[in-house]
């Protein structure tokens, strides 16, 4: 067991956790932030993407103890004062989600894209989302939503 201190969605948290607990387990089981999903647990599907110090990573493949002192944003922390993030709004407007399981990771990944590239092309969006698998949407409305969000941000 190790003591870790993290800032999660703006709140400072100190917890004792097992050395081998990955971040997705910590978020879901210790903090009950179940919006971060686990689809493959081996860092391919992207359902577990969160931001660590402003960058998107796959939380299933990061040890919590490895992130001592980091600032973490999960899907639950993206909306501010009850208002959804423009990316979330765009996904809703353009039907960028169906079952919603891949969605938290997809949204977190897309938000990171716009930090790096304010006006991405369709191709750039599709390539960026390489690490996020969606089985429902055929991706088309996701790409449209990311473009829509880019135009609003």
């Amino acid at each position: 067991m190790k003591k870790v201190t993290l800032e999660v969605n703006g709140k400072k948290i100190t917890k004792e956790i097992q050395d081998h607990a990955v971040l997705s387990v910590f978020l879901r089981e210790v903090l009950n932030l179940t919006g971060t999903h686990v689809g493959c647990d081996t860092s391919q599907c992207g359902a577990c993407v969160v931001h660590v110090d402003g960058k998107s990573i796959k939380s299933c493949t990061a040890l919590t103890v490895d992130l001592q002192g980091s600032k973490i944003t999960t899907i639950e922390g993206l909306a501010k004062n009850g208002k959804m993030h423009p990316m979330q709004e765009a996904f809703k407007k353009l039907h960028g989600l169906q079952c919603g399981f891949c969605t938290p990771g997809m949204v977190m990944s897309a938000v990171d894209l716009l930090k790096n590239n304010k006006k991405p092309s369709d191709t750039e969006i599709r390539e960026w989302l390489e690490g996020n698998i969606c089985r429902c949407t055929g991706y088309q409305n996701i790409v449209a939503a990311v473009k829509e969000a880019a135009s609003k941000m």
């Binding site: 639950e76 996904f91 407007k93 039907h95 989600l97 919603g100 938290p104």
Partner: peptide
């Protein structure tokens, strides 16, 4: 019509 179920799913409040 935009989907009624989307807000919860987009904000991590879905319950699987």
């Amino acid at each position: 019509v935009e989907r009624k179920e989307d807000k919860k799913l987009l904000t991590g409040r879905g319950k699987y």
